[in-house]
């Protein structure tokens, strides 16, 4: 599903370039649930952004679903994200003036799905994450856990190949965190590849494999915990 070969990425910080990712080689198979760990500054967010086609890389090769992701126009990148990728963010990133259902339906809007149809689908996915009754509530009327469930429903609605979750539990308490992880696991069991960035060991332990980044290199890739 995901193939990285010698990926390099540096940022210009002031006068000197900051080499964030150094020769990253990585393979994630279809249906895997993987966590990426690392302290802040280890390059894990950058890696996730490149994987999510939100950012470009300097050298190397990235294949997603066997498609080479390189030098894409913004429109093409947008289309690929819409087709293959679902995002779950630490701060949920729901659109504040849209209710839960409209938020879930938003990706389908960019696929030009008619309004009625996408709202119907959105309702189905909200029920799937257990929030059917909250469909007409605005984001500020929902708890953190509920917001993250809405965000997960939103990431699922396009039936993506892979979901990237950036600290999905970072803003949640322990109980809610585990609920969210369970939800992500059940999504994964439907065959969707799951990549979770986290700095919490107990969250990482809930995944199939942990990739540890340090100073822009992968220092460990184990599948100890199952």
């Amino acid at each position: 599903m995901i193939e990285l070969k010698k990926i390099n990425k540096s940022y210009q910080v002031g006068a000197s370039p900051l080499h964030v990712l150094k020769d990253i080689d990585l393979h994630i198979a279809e249906g895997e649930m993987v966590s990426i760990m690392g302290s802040s500054g280890s390059g894990k967010s950058t890696l996730l952004n490149i994987l999510g086609i939100l950012d470009s890389y300097d050298s190397g090769e990235y294949r997603l679903n066997n498609e080479l992701i390189q030098h894409l126009s913004e429109a093409r990148a947008a289309k690929l994200r819409n087709q293959y990728i679902g995002f779950v963010f630490q701060s949920f990133n729901l659109v504040s003036f849209k209710n839960a259902m409209e938020n879930v339906a938003l990706p389908l809007y960019y696929q030009k799905v008619p309004r009625k149809q996408r709202n119907k689908l959105a309702l189905e996915y909200l029920e799937k994450v257990g929030l059917g009754e909250w469909a007409t509530h605005m984001p500020n009327e929902l708890s953190g856990g509920q917001k993250q469930r809405v965000a997960i429903a939103r990431s699922l609605i396009t039936k993506p190949k892979v979901i990237f979750a950036d600290e999905p539990t970072g803003a949640l308490d322990t109980t809610t965190s585990h609920d969210v992880m369970e939800l992500l696991r059940s999504v994964n069991q439907e065959g969707i590849t799951m990549v979770i960035v986290t700095h919490e060991t107990d969250i990482a332990e809930l995944t199939d494999r942990t990739i540890v980044l340090k100073d822009g290199r992968i220092i460990e890739s184990n599948s100890l915990h199952v």
Binding site: K79, F87, N93, V95, S96, L106, P107, Y110
Partner: peptide, 16 residues
């Protein structure tokens, strides 16, 4: 800006 970013992540094209 943030909302626009989210929209783009969800597949909004620049034109939209």
């Amino acid at each position: 800006t943030r909302e626009i970013g989210v929209r783009k992540a969800l597949g909004a094209t620049p034109w939209s």
